[in-house]
């Protein structure tokens, strides 16, 4: 038995330790790993009607993955440009949402983390309470704000700033706002947690040592907050790349999110293997991208858990 397990059992007793361990294993293996493995399995199989499953035609194949790259066999194009474009657009948009969110949330988190007093608790509550409202309702609320006859257009057209209503939805502004808004807390709180533990003397020392404010952030606060920033960015990126409700409700008619394609494959086309393959591609790409970013910014896996 490895040392940490022995210590774990010593601390919790055998009965309690075993219960906790089994629950954790059930959670990770039973609810996460096994379903994902079965998805992985699906993705390598042809889409067959139920009677033929397990039959001679049910063999492993790469056709689902090939479909994403090359499109239908004998199709008019060399590549599946529609789906690929959606795929890359989704990734780039998720990166943009993440960066936008970071720029928006860092000052808020810094303010919350470094000020003292009761008003901080009120601010935090004001940030949290809107999230009691469910995601769909929040998305539709944004539609009310951004719609063609929505609040913003009524105001701006009424004031005479614009002649005709601006289509926020077709231009994806509503989508980005919705995605940005949806994950604000996931960005703020990890950064807030780290910055709260930053000794305020370090900032004062930097002032004493002659650093201007931007340099204090660049050289002192941001390096210190790096674990929180990377953990927040990872969550926001993963969740916006995998978001479904916001693109469905706020996305323009011409701009699909890759998750919507996956949803269509599962639901409308009833092609689970194809959907599974798309989902796996999205998952693996996102993980590789995050790992690459972590290496680029010299973040350890352990930091994410902070």
């Amino acid at each position: 038995m490895p040392g940490f397990l022995k210590e774990f059992f010593n601390r919790n007793g055998t009965g309690m330790g075993l219960t906790i361990l089994l629950l954790v294993l059930f959670w990770t293996i039973g609810l996460i790993i096994l379903p994902q493995l079965s998805m992985l399995d699906f993705s390598f199989r042809p889409n067959l009607p139920p009677p033929e499953i397990g039959g001679p035609k049910d063999v492993y194949t790469l056709e689902n993955y090939q479909y994403l790259v090359y499109g239908p066999e004998g199709g008019s194009q060399d590549y599946n440009s529609v789906d690929l474009r959606v795929f890359f657009r989704t990734l780039i948009a998720a990166v943009c949402v993440t960066i936008f969110n970071l720029i928006l949330c860092y000052p808020i988190a810094y303010y919350l983390g470094q000020s003292k007093g009761n008003h901080i608790r009120i601010f935090a509550m004001m940030l949290i309470i809107p999230y009691w409202i469910n995601e769909i309702l929040r998305a539709f609320a944004l539609r009310i704000i951004f719609g063609e006859t929505g609040v913003l257009n009524t105001i701006f057209v009424g004031l005479g700033i614009w002649d005709t209503p601006f289509d926020f939805i077709r231009n994806d502004i509503a989508l980005y706002a919705g995605l940005g808004y949806a994950y604000i807390l996931l960005m703020i709180f990890p950064i807030y947690n780290v910055i709260e533990s930053l000794d305020h003397n370090q900032i004062e020392a930097a002032r004493d040592l002659g650093a201007p404010w931007w340099r204090i952030h660049w050289r002192v606060v941001i390096p210190y907050a790096k674990p929180g920033i990377s953990s927040g960015c990872t969550m926001v990126f993963m969740l916006s790349a995998g978001a479904l409700a916001a693109p469905q409700i706020l996305g323009g008619p011409s701009s699909l999110w890759f998750t919507q394609l996956i949803y269509q494959q599962f639901n409308d086309n009833n092609d689970w293997p194809q959907g599974a393959a798309y989902a796996i591609v999205l998952l693996v790409t996102c993980i590789l991208f995050v790992l690459a970013m972590m290496r680029l910014f010299k973040v350890n896996m352990g930091d994410i858990g902070k």
Partner: peptide, 27 residues
């Protein structure tokens, strides 16, 4: 502060954890 010709030593040291001793002193 930086132009007063003073230097302060803080109670909690306020060293920067991501910088080496050399970098801290050279800051």
């Amino acid at each position: 502060p930086a132009q007063r010709g003073i230097a302060m030593v803080f109670q909690s040291y306020a060293l920067y954890p991501h910088m080496t001793v050399r970098e801290n002193m050279a800051f």
